[in-house]
Design a protein around this nucleic acid. Structure first.
Lengths: 342, 342
DNA sequence: TGTCCACACTAAAACCATTTAGTATAGGCA
DNA sequence: TGCCTATACTAAATGGTTTTAGTGTGGACA
């Protein structure tokens, strides 16, 4: 029942395990193993369908060929799609992925890092939560490659792949203004992480540019850990209290809850209240009216993340890769006034 | 930079690594290690924040505390949600999850199994593809627990957690009939796997029960590997060629493509053509009109899967667990004729 | 004939935790 | 005093691979 080991091959070939290891690791030439022996070993390995025991190898080399992927919520459309791309790309390099969701909770995140650390993953893809600076620095100290995604930590020098959140929010908000909406609110998360800040800043900058005042009354922040009912309740309450003619939702799930809330108030999206959301979603595309959104290039994000990680795994550099990809404004009906009566 | 090992603790405590191992594994009593020494070791281990090297442990014990999760498509709403629950549940038992998507492609699935095998995962959660009987049997032979999900293989005796597909499809179809729809089509996948067969059978049985003839003209099968455009093209073509007044979509993504297709034909969902889809989705809930669906109890599915797997990991039984959970028919507007004009 | 080197391999250690098979000591009992 | 047993540990093997530091042989050269 045991697996085939290098010893079995050695025995059959009448050589030592060392020789087998050399040949199987492509060091035959370098270690001057004769072609005869080389071929023989390769043949036997093939015949026995030898697969190196990753544990033993990992124990010896310290490399597990495993990546740790920490996302906010693997069940969420955006992160599930990232996970898919990461899986595919990692696979191309012979890496497998261990995943975990933080729920934007620092404790959970720390726990995940802990587990991934003592499982000796080779590299980390991290969606950082608040106050993770120390942990990231620690990983850097032990020379484990880390790529942050979706957001970065301003006080930590690390690799990251993000989108231009400022630009995305600015474009979306400018678009709303161009459509004639005047009283525009932003619904975002309580987290003061950089990506949210930037979305907020892009939003504010667009208002300012067009001479619209930006103040606290048009900002609604919601904690991540509310459930669906909690979110819709809060959003509904806000919309009742604050008369706005358009809303910018800072993430996809807020957009979804937003749709529910707006509808529960009997308002017509587009006509009565325009809306734009960050992140695309099947729901946004197919909703009536369809929802304008700031779409992130998920494929590109995933590819770049793994690309950076692989570069660092192969030969650590001392320059940080900071990739800022451009999101795309998908203009749909929810932000077009003329289309409303459809 | 090295981690703390059992040796370091042994040295500090002035005992042998063996003793440390015994104490740390809770065998102090059994191996009659004195309380003094026990406490000392525990204290030092705590102070040094000792974490056992999982590779070394795995190499010795053959247990990696890792599960392999093979889904059809981790980016799909349904599977992403399953993955989330599985992650959470596995975590409670100290297990991590390696995931992979098959795209319903047997070659990919085999590759995934191969990789998971030589990474020595302790147990498998598998969404099987066609012709995987041999691989599953092989895992059984080497005494690796396997739980199939979403579908099972009729010719293999294994654990599985599925929903009552027949009942779900039967209820959905009966509901359409009760609403007065008469010419009902089914749009499903080309795969002849058991879950699809059962959905088909439930559909056919409901028609039959109400004296509606079931024939090939009302069945449209689509291969998994079509892209979005391909799917909508095919569905549109089918709907143009075949006059129907309601459609049963056998999976969530078919339902989504179906919505697009129906709308591109200028038909009103509900009024012109009723629809029901398998699997729930935010999109279905919020679409106008909202889409009736057969909702799978994802939380329950995930919990049961991990539960069965843990039972088997702890003491393999020779009875197979066959869990068939009941889906729920979520009645919404897309299948209600009166509601159409809303 | 003796020295040196290239060649083609191999022995053994290392990675770290677990586990089997002991060992050394003290005390009880005859 | 000698034998036995319980106590409280430990040495060494094990798992499979990689890697360092060799070893033995044959031929070239002086």
């Amino acid at each position: 029942m045991k697996g085939i080991s290098i010893k079995d091959i050695a025995k059959q070939a009448g050589v030592s395990p060392t020789t087998v290891s050399f040949v199987l690791n492509g060091k035959a030439k370098e270690k001057r193993i004769s072609d005869q022996v080389s071929k023989k070993i390769l043949k036997i390995a093939n015949k026995l369908k030898y697969k190196p025991n990753q544990l033993a190898r990992g124990l010896r080399t310290g490399k597990t060929k495993t990546l740790g992927l920490i996302v906010e919520d693997i069940a969420n459309n955006f992160w599930a799609n990232v996970a898919k791309v990461v899986e595919d790309e990692a696979d191309k390099h012979g890496y497998k992925v261990l995943y975990g969701s933080t729920e934007d909770n620092s404790e959970k995140a720390r726990g995940l890092l802990e587990v991934l650390k003592y499982r000796q993953v080779d590299g980390y893809i991290i969606t950082p939560t608040k106050n993770m600076e120390k942990e990231i620095e620690l990983l850097k100290m032990v020379r484990k490659p880390v790529v942050l995604m979706d957001r970065y930590l301003p006080n930590v020098d690390s690799h990251y792949v993000v989108v231009d959140n400022y630009q995305g929010a600015f474009a979306a908000t400018s678009h709303l203004i161009a459509q004639g909406y005047k009283k525009i609110a932003i619904i975002t998360t309580t987290s003061d992480q950089v990506q949210m800040k930037q979305r907020m800043e892009g939003f504010a900058a667009a208002l300012k540019k067009h001479g619209i005042t930006f103040n606290k009354t048009i900002v609604k922040k919601l904690p991540f850990d509310l459930d669906r009912a909690g979110h819709t309740q809060e959003i509904t309450k806000f919309l009742r209290a604050t008369k706005v003619d358009a809303i910018f939702f800072a993430t996809n799930y807020l957009g979804i809850y937003g749709i529910e809330s707006i509808r529960s108030l009997g308002l017509r999206i587009g006509a009565d209240v325009g809306m734009v959301s960050f992140d695309d979603h099947d729901l946004f595309r197919l909703h009536s009216p369809s929802i304008t959104c700031v779409s992130q290039p998920i494929g590109e994000i995933g590819r770049q993340i793994v690309d950076v990680l692989m570069k660092e795994l192969n030969h650590a550099s001392n320059t940080s890769h900071h990739l800022v990809l451009s999101p795309t404004l998908e203009i749909r009906q929810s932000s077009i006034r003329e289309e409303n009566n459809k």
